[in-house]
Simulated assay, not measured.
Amino acid sequence: MEYSNAIMKVLVFLACTTHLALAGSHSLQYFYTAVTPGINFPEYTSVGLVDGEQIVYCDSNIRKNIPKTEWMEKNEGAEYWDRQTQICLRQQKNFKVNLGTAMGRFNQTKGVHTVQRMVACELDDDGTKRGYRQDAYDGEDFISLDMNTQTWTAPKPQAVITKNKWEATGVAATHYKNYLENTCIESLQKYVSYGRDTLERKDHPEVSVFQKDSSAVCHATGFFPKAVMISWQKDGEDVNENVELRETLPNHDGTFQKKSILILSPEELKNHKYTCVVQHSGLDIVMPLHPGGVSVGVIVGVVAVLLLVLIGCVGFFIWRKKKNDFKPVAASDGEGSSTSSK
């Protein structure tokens, strides 16, 4: 039970922090996770994704960085994979130290705990850049970078000492701003050029609308890219109350699915006309709700995204066991080496 709760926190945090690239943009994300030993899960895991599709993977069991798409394997040679493997092995050691230090900060000596990190950048067609560096402990926000002010946000008291140390010199913020706006973007552009035929294809959703007990369900599935909007209308007017919009989830074939649930009474269902509107990649699909029946709309499309469940993660700062020391992570395409030595 303790293990399940810990992994659930990872998933919840991932759902809240995985940024959804806008239409006409591309994203590169790296997720790192360290977990306490003794459970049936790798102690360290790293994964890289372009536009939500997993491109590289490494963990403490396989002890090497491997390609997860044909276009990555085809375009990067043995030297690249050897270098990334060595980086992964060094990061594994550093994150193990981080986990022990974080547990100390929270006065914990046992139990299942996780240290997580996300480093990501996005590039729009118009040249707009965005970057993210977010850390977590046990699936909850720990510290994150504000790219605009180059300051650190520390929602936990245990992270304030880190915030103060990093802001004392500004080196860490400057390093990540430079990495996210330059190195990360350059890597993103390179990887998109490798997989353009796949990444820029479009799969429009199959949409079904049906009644379930005292609610109406609108389900969109099989779509790519991930960005989608689902809304309800009542007699042609937008409905904003009693609507539960679920998280976007991956399908086994790499596409995505999402559902919206509208709570309504039998009287409302009888006296009003309800429709679901799904917007995806410039296409609007409008599906009516037929009480007691199922409305299905199919739009044909293509493409794939593979999202690693359980391992997509947001990272924590790397610490030494010696209080207040910072041990930088080795440089990689996923995250540049830190110029800080706090």
Rank of each mutant, 00 (worst) to 15 (best):
E2Q: 05
E2S: 01
I7N: 00
M8S: 01
M8L: 06
M8H: 09
K9Y: 05
V10W: 00
L11T: 03
F13R: 08
L14P: 05
T18P: 12
L20P: 13
A21F: 10
S27F: 08
L28F: 13
L28Y: 07
F31H: 15
V35N: 04
N40G: 04
N40E: 14
F41S: 02
T45W: 12
S46N: 11
G48H: 04
G48E: 07
G52L: 11
E53K: 10
Q54V: 11
Q54W: 03
Y57W: 10
Y57T: 09
S60R: 05
R63C: 11
K64D: 09
K64A: 08
P67Y: 09
K68V: 05
E73T: 04
G77W: 03
E79A: 10
E79L: 08
E79Q: 03
E79Y: 07
Y80G: 01
T85D: 07
Q86C: 12
C88T: 11
C88S: 14
R90D: 11
Q92H: 06
K93D: 09
G100V: 03
M103W: 05
G104A: 06
F106N: 06
N107P: 02
T109E: 08
V112L: 01
H113Y: 09
C121V: 03
D126A: 08
G127K: 06
G131I: 07
Q134E: 14
Q134N: 15
E140I: 05
S144Y: 15
D146P: 09
W152L: 10
A154I: 06
Q158H: 02
A159K: 05
N164T: 06
N164S: 04
K165A: 13
A173V: 01
N178L: 02
L180N: 04
T183K: 03
C184D: 02
L188W: 03
L188R: 03
S193N: 06
S193L: 01
S193T: 07
D197P: 00
K202Y: 05
V207F: 04
V207C: 07
V209G: 03
F210G: 01
D213Q: 14
D213M: 11
S214R: 15
S214H: 15
S215A: 14
G222I: 00
M229S: 12
M229P: 00
S231I: 07
K234C: 09
D235C: 10
D235W: 09
D238M: 12
T248W: 08
L249S: 06
N251T: 01
D253L: 00
G254D: 00
F256S: 00
K258W: 07
P266I: 14
E268A: 08
L269R: 13
K270L: 11
K273F: 14
C276H: 08
V277C: 13
V278I: 15
G282M: 05
G282T: 02
L283F: 08
D284L: 10
V286L: 12
P288W: 11
H290M: 05
V294K: 13
S295M: 13
S295L: 02
V296G: 07
I299F: 13
I299D: 06
I299S: 14
V300M: 15
G301Y: 01
L308M: 13
I311L: 11
V314T: 15
V314N: 15
F317L: 15
W319L: 14
R320P: 01
K322A: 09
N324W: 10
F326V: 14
K327R: 08
P328M: 09
D333S: 04
G334I: 02
G336Q: 03
S337L: 08
T339L: 14
